[in-house]
């Protein structure tokens, strides 16, 4: 069984058909939740990374800003992933063959893994090791903004 068969099966489940046949405004409302959630995520990531880079909110400890940012990042990510899954399920075969979608998923997985591992460690020790903190901030910005750019590209091919 290949991935394509699985996707084809998902697409032909009642739920997949329901999503695909539903009014286009249903799809539009998923898109709205998707962009608002993703913007909240990007804003939280940007804030935390600006702090680690030492250019904003420098009087607050990195730990406090990371903690406050992570709450919003979690809410934004949950909203974006949930709505994104519903958007995907309306046409899994079409989306999975889209090169920008593939790039977006690779970058998304990399961003989540990085955020939960190396970034976590680097931000926790940002006071003693500021260079590692800055490096983590740059990688995090590139990964998450890469997710956004590649996501925007999906509709163009």
């Amino acid at each position: 069984m290949t991935i394509l068969t699985v996707l084809q099966w998902v697409q032909d489940t009642e739920f997949g058909i329901f999503l695909r046949k539903s009014n286009h405004l249903v799809g539009a409302s998923f898109q709205l939740v998707h962009i608002l959630g993703f913007l909240l995520l990007l804003a939280a990531v940007t804030l935390v990374d600006l702090r680690l880079l030492g250019v904003a909110l420098v009087k607050e400890t990195p730990a406090r800003i990371v903690g406050a940012g992570n709450k919003l990042l979690g809410i934004g990510l949950a909203a974006a992933v949930l709505s994104g899954t519903l958007i995907f399920l309306a046409g899994p075969v079409r989306y999975s063959s889209n090169e920008f979608f593939q790039l977006k998923m690779v970058l998304l997985i990399a961003a989540v893994l990085f955020q939960a591992s190396l970034f976590r460690v680097a931000s926790r020790h940002a006071v003693e090791r500021p260079v590692a903190g800055k490096l983590a901030a740059v990688v995090s910005l590139l990964l998450w903004f890469g997710v956004g750019i590649s996501g925007r590209g999906i509709g163009f091919i």
Binding site: I35, L39, L40, L42, A43, T46, L47, F145, G148, I149, R152
Partner: peptide
């Protein structure tokens, strides 16, 4: 879209 992360996003 990415400009929005800084403008509307940080403003939010």
């Amino acid at each position: 879209l990415l400009g929005l992360a800084f403008s509307v996003g940080l403003l939010a």
